[in-house]
Design a binder for these strands. Sequence first.
DNA 1: CGGCGCATTGAGGGCGGTCAATTGGTGTGG
DNA 2: CCACACCAATTGACCGCCCTCAATGCGCCG
Lengths: 218, 218
Amino acid sequence: MLEGAIVRTTAFQADEDMVREGDRPSDSKLLLEGFAARYKILHNGKRQITSIHVPGDFVDLHNFTLKVMDHAIFAMSPCKVAVVPHEVLHRITEEHPHLTRLLWLNTTIDGAIHRQTLVNLGRQAALGQLAHLLCELFVRLEVVGETEDYSFRLPITQSELGDALGLSTVHVNRTLQELRSQGLLTWRGNLVVIEDWERLCEVAQFDPVYLNLEHQPR
Amino acid sequence: MLEGAIVRTTAFQADEDMVREGDRPSDSKLLLEGFAARYKILHNGKRQITSIHVPGDFVDLHNFTLKVMDHAIFAMSPCKVAVVPHEVLHRITEEHPHLTRLLWLNTTIDGAIHRQTLVNLGRQAALGQLAHLLCELFVRLEVVGETEDYSFRLPITQSELGDALGLSTVHVNRTLQELRSQGLLTWRGNLVVIEDWERLCEVAQFDPVYLNLEHQPR
DNA sequence: CGGCGCATTGAGGGCGGTCAATTGGTGTGG
DNA sequence: CCACACCAATTGACCGCCCTCAATGCGCCG
């Protein structure tokens, strides 16, 4: 059904906006390749990235119900995207309740990730925040087969990491050095290698329950 | 339909948990009276409140799709709650697509609020954070008729405010004093009076678009 | 080879944290 | 009617994490 809902695929260059704040898109986008992120810009020019997306993520499914974008989404790397018209989603909700519940689930998992991120930003020190983000990305990438042992490609700058965690670029850099010096991971080019998964999880206080990876009847 | 979906109402005392982390509730709860909040506890005992809920909020509708609670919800004040069994929600998704889309919308607005909160925690100074939270609560309470002019009741301690914003109680206190000394608001007992809505919004960089109060065909 | 973007480093400062004590309001019991 | 307990609000002192500004290093590409 979903495959049939895709009317076309599109590509975006790195740093290109896929959707802008204020837009009223008539379709939703499923990320096939590359990394994307949702963000908002404040009056003082500061940027907050509210979520990072990996292949398989339905990056703006929520705008099927929300209609007006309250944030923008950009490609962190070159991206390929499948386009699903709202019209088709509407028909699915009319005719396929089970699939509808699964799409709904998709957006509530999104919300669960937001909540965990809130805990991170609010109550974790920089070291734990960074560790947690990397734990989460590793698990999410593993699910879609984008990892190799304990390593994965992450085409993200330190400045973007800072915008995702509410930290300055400088402090992200120093915190990464701390993670490296503790032997928790290495990061060369865009290849992240987790050297000690157990301890990284401890530092991050990472518990993947919120990702809802367990199969359940829906 | 929704009214028919309510099988009973329940009451909770202040500080009582309505749902606990790890629970697999068989119903969802619609808040009729009082204030509630979602939260998580970290290993070090710190608490992060991820959202504050006012009358009219469907506090755990998302667990209809998520099944396992990844966080807890507690009553910040005495609460009255309407209980809707998942069984009934399931039937609604099978038979009433339009209502299903509206319920789905409810959870995506929830997500939109989370995203805005992320921006706050990540990129606002304490003064702006507090101002933003109060702007949002005012608007949300206004919608359900729980305000009077520019005032509303807010049965929340400064310690709880701190847990919602990722700040210490001490700093919440000092920041509130700053808001008062700038003539933006007063707060006596649990009565909050906004003295200068315009300037409060400026300090908060508040833009209510994310609350999706505009009527749209869904 | 020069330019550009990103990573890295250093110095200095401030926002917000922690610890601890005090105030004040409210309810309860004597 | 007062004494006392309890809880939230408030205040002070001190500290440290993280920010800002600015310079430097470094790899990649035309």
